[in-house]
């Protein structure tokens, strides 16, 4: 697998420390080049990133509550503009794990719904299934 064509996971969260956290949590996987992590601090940033790397991104992990474009809005855009198969798996993450949000995420086409704090063991398991 060449580095340009390596499968990418995009993490969207307004908290910058999320980047450090993911990089350390997936340190082995990154080192072993199982996949590559990319980060966006907002929905807008995520969309512009996707415009350049649409075909490479297999999984998007997005926070719902962000200033500016919300996770739901991002999800709607992804399902609208980046739907060429294979369409990316989208997992929504939120601190407010209420049924309404989950239903809304599912309705908008999310593949999964995770609540903070993230259980990285579970997340790794899910990633392995996808990759």
């Amino acid at each position: 697998m060449g580095s340009a064509g390596m499968l990418k996971i995009l993490v969207v969260d307004d908290e910058p420390d999320v980047k450090d956290l993911f990089q350390q949590r997936f340190r082995r996987e990154i080192r072993n080049e199982e996949f590559r992590l990319d980060f966006a601090n907002s929905g807008e940033e995520a969309l512009s990133y996707l415009n350049g790397h649409a075909s490479e991104v297999i999984l998007i992990l997005s926070d719902i509550n962000m200033p500016g474009m919300s996770g739901f809005e991002l999800l709607r855009q992804i399902r609208k503009d980046f739907n060429t198969p294979p369409s990316p798996v989208v997992m929504m993450i939120t601190a407010y794990g209420d049924p309404n949000s989950e239903q809304m995420a599912v309705d908008l086409g999310a593949n999964d719904f995770l609540t903070k704090p993230l259980d990285f063991a579970v997340l790794k398991q899910k990633l392995k299934e996808i990759v």
């Binding site: 908290e15 956290l21 350390q24 601190a95 704090p117």
Partner: peptide
């Protein structure tokens, strides 16, 4: 919410530090 967020980071960075 505001306490939960930093607490999550505290927990996460502690756990990841143990791994490190």
């Amino acid at each position: 919410h505001e306490i939960q967020n930093p607490l999550n980071f505290v927990n996460n960075f502690s756990e990841v530090s143990i791994e490190l």
